[in-house]
């Protein structure tokens, strides 16, 4: 290698290093949490699925595919609801972010309308007349849904997550003053006295307008991932 080539390579290396340092100085150093968020989203965006991104700090929920924000929902509130004795500490599953949680049961997963014909008849050939006026119609089968009697989904519902927490979608911040908590505790104590063990899963309350809640009801389905992390909506 000639000396001029060597000088040129040194100059090129110096230029590239300077440019890299300059670029790095231009943006603040990233925290490990931000780096983890990028890593997790990179993994989710590899497949063509729809996933959700919850940024608790910005109170924003994104619907994304392939890293693209399809729709952004502003949360009116975000709270943790944990069951606890009236005077005492709460016991709740650990909650750590950044993380990807997965929906194990969506609110609409159990309230699908099931239809089934009573019996099947041979398909009539062209010009062939049917023996009866019309074939037996499919019969709706009650599916024990959680929606209202008219089959419309509710604007307040729960979504089961794989981390033992549940998303609790509500349209107004939960009212949990001392009097309401006292009444709830009395009711709970009465149920326990009767030998029942009411389930009190830890809840992540998302306060959303009714229309938005219904929109998300349609979207929350089993196996859908939810990326959660402070700054998740703005990290990129």
């Amino acid at each position: 290698m000639s000396s001029s080539t060597r000088r040129f390579l040194w100059a090129l290396a110096f230029f590239c290093t300077s440019a890299a340092v300059g670029a790095a100085e231009g943006r603040p150093a990233r925290t490990p949490e931000e780096l983890r968020l990028v890593e997790l989203e990179g993994q989710l965006a590899r497949s063509p699925i729809v996933y959700l991104v919850l940024d608790p700090a910005a109170k924003v929920l994104d619907i994304r595919v392939r890293g693209i924000v399809i729709e952004r929902v502003e949360l009116q509130g975000l709270e943790l609801l944990t069951y606890r004795p009236l005077f005492g500490d709460a016991e709740a599953p650990p909650l750590a972010i950044p993380a990807v949680w997965t929906i194990t049961q969506g609110p609409g997963d159990t309230d699908r309308e099931v239809i089934a014909p009573v019996r099947l008849r041979p398909y009539p050939k062209d010009g062939e007349e049917e023996e009866e006026e019309s074939p037996p119609a499919p019969t709706p089968i009650p599916s024990g849904d959680e929606g209202d009697p008219e089959g419309e989904p509710r604007a307040t519902y729960r979504v089961q997550l794989d981390n033992e927490w549940q998303l609790y979608v509500v349209n107004a911040p939960p009212k949990l003053d001392l009097w309401r908590r006292y009444l709830a505790a009395v009711h709970d104590g009465w149920e326990r006295l009767r030998g029942r063990q009411p389930a009190h899963p830890a809840l992540i309350a998302l306060v959303l307008p009714e229309e938005t809640a219904l929109r998300l009801h349609h979207l929350f389905r089993a196996k859908m991932p939810l990326l959660v992390g402070d700054g998740a909506a703005t990290v990129r």
Binding site: E33, A90, P174, R181, A184, A185, A205
Partner: peptide
């Protein structure tokens, strides 16, 4: 007594530990 025996939900702002 029933309230002492039972419990209820209490709310707090969203706070999570760092998974790292």
């Amino acid at each position: 007594g029933l309230a002492r025996y039972g419990g209820s939900y209490a709310a707090r702002p969203f706070a999570a530990a760092s998974s790292l």
